[in-house]
């Protein structure tokens, strides 16, 4: 009897762990991967890059938990044929040298200030706050149950002179 129970519980554990092991990543890692993917489906105006040797700048608030994960995951990665340079910035730094600005981890007021400073500049802004798209951010990530999905503010992208591929738009949960 006890043996039977043992066997069944092993099997349950085994099956459970296997199913979960197949597809489970941390939310932070998935967000890092999304960010990398977005950069592949967006065209920046050519005048953004000074020389062919310039890196691709992804900027992130220095104190945010995701900064460390980006550092680990982006090492050696390339985007748009350029090496990724991760810049860990504070609110007071200039964000306009970034191609991608990941703004989660900034306080509400600071985020608004950075967003407004970046208005019209060719920077892909990514955030997670409930209001990020409405505030003028280009891509908003959000938790949908156990999944992470994203929505796009096309007006903001156009103002920033970013061309988003139709494939990316099709996969967005919402395009406003």
């Amino acid at each position: 009897m006890v043996r039977g129970i043992q066997r069944v519980s092993w099997m349950i554990l085994l099956v459970a762990r296997l199913t979960w092991a197949e597809t489970q990543y941390s939310a932070e890692d998935v967000k890092c991967a999304y960010t990398l993917n977005f950069a592949k489906f967006i065209d920046w105006p050519p005048d953004v890059f000074g020389s062919p040797r310039d890196g691709f700048h992804i900027c992130v608030p220095a104190q945010g938990a995701i900064a460390d994960r980006m550092e680990a995951l982006y090492s050696g990665q390339r985007v748009q044929n350029r090496a990724i340079e991760l810049l860990k910035l504070s609110e007071r730094d200039s964000w306009s040298r970034c191609q991608v600005a990941y703004l989660n981890g900034l306080a509400h007021g600071a985020r608004e200030r950075v967003l407004s400073a970046l208005r019209g500049k060719p920077v892909l802004t990514i955030g997670e706050s409930h209001e990020f798209n409405r505030e003028g951010g280009v891509i908003q990530l959000r938790h949908a149950g156990v999944h992470i999905r994203f929505s796009v503010n096309l007006n903001a992208a156009e103002k920033a002179r970013l061309r988003i591929s139709s494939k990316l738009l099709k996969l967005a949960e919402e395009v406003r």
Binding site: W20, T23, Q24, Y25, S26, A27, E28, D29, V30, C32, A33, Y34, L36, N37, F41, L73, Y74, Q77, H143, G145, V146, H147, I148, R149, L168, L171
Partner: peptide, 18 residues
């Protein structure tokens, strides 16, 4: 995780649910 496509990322289950 960095090798996953956007379609795959959409279906990934994440551990931390906010």
């Amino acid at each position: 995780v960095t090798e996953l496509s956007i379609e795959e990322l959409r279906d990934v289950r994440v551990t931390a649910i906010a």
